[in-house]
Nucleic acid binder design. Structure first.
Length: 218
DNA sequence: CCTTGCAGGTATCAGCTACG
DNA sequence: CGTAGCTGATACCTGCAAGG
């Protein structure tokens, strides 16, 4: 394998690009922000990255100290990839990039589960949730997430939650339409794209707590 | 399940020349 | 002096197939 590209520049930003600037590298980091994943799960999240490229990026990011490979105990007999503590420091970087790029985001694109969850964290405005206290169960493409929105903080974790104010089942693209593009919840329900059980206002509180940046002038 | 090797296509770069 | 266009070399990315 040829030597990696190098900007030969003492600037920190250039060095950052040396570390995570290769194609797919930052998206691999994004896929691991919510927790460890197996190679197959990473492939599912990045379907347009071929397996050898993904393998190469994982090795490069491991060499750089951004992520580590961890063998699962038997009977799993496989490995997972997870961000190192230093690698986890890239989440606010991803959020800043996402917030910046959202100003020119094409509206028609679909969005994957992890990307949508990250976008919630990215676009969350604490002041908008100062007097809120709700718990939501999101089930996006059959993947459950526990969302607790309270007193200016947004906590999202993978997993089931009992006693949620509302349970929302849909695709991440549909929920992105509701949260980011202003698609009325009732319209998504009427079109059969979203199934809501419980208090709809809890979902409205979540929608209200998130703000898209101003789009660029045409 | 994950990695490796290969072949082919594409992007990028340096070097050169021409032009205003 | 700065810019644009062209060309060839090289690096890189990708899909496919096969191996461990």
């Amino acid at each position: 394998m040829a030597a990696r590209r190098d900007y030969f520049d003492g600037c920190g930003a250039a060095h950052a690009l040396d570390l995570v600037g290769e194609r797919w590298a930052l998206l691999v980091v994004r896929e691991l922000v919510l927790g460890p994943k197996r190679f197959t799960d990473l492939r599912a999240g990045l379907p347009h990255a071929s397996p050898n490229v993904l393998s190469q990026r994982l090795r490069e990011l491991e060499d750089a100290g951004v992520l580590r490979r961890r063998r699962l105990p038997p009977p799993a007999a496989s490995a997972v990839y997870e961000l190192t503590e230093w690698g986890q420091e890239l989440e606010p970087v991803l959020q800043s990039l996402g917030r910046w790029a959202a100003r020119s985001l094409p509206e028609a694109d679909s969005i994957k589960v992890d990307s949508f969850i990250l976008s919630l964290r990215t676009l969350f405005v604490p002041e908008r949730a100062a007097d809120v206290d709700v718990t939501l169960q999101l089930v996006l493409d059959e993947q459950p997430f526990r969302v607790h929105l309270a007193h200016g903080e947004l906590d999202i974790e993978r997993g089931e939650v009992s006693g949620a104010d509302v349970t929302v089942r849909c695709s991440p693209t549909t929920l992105a339409g509701v949260v980011h593009m202003g698609l009325p919840i009732a319209d998504a329900e009427a079109q059969g794209q979203l199934v809501l059980t419980g208090d709809a206002t809890a979902l409205e509180r979540l929608v209200d707590s998130v703000q898209m940046p101003e789009p660029l002038p045409a």
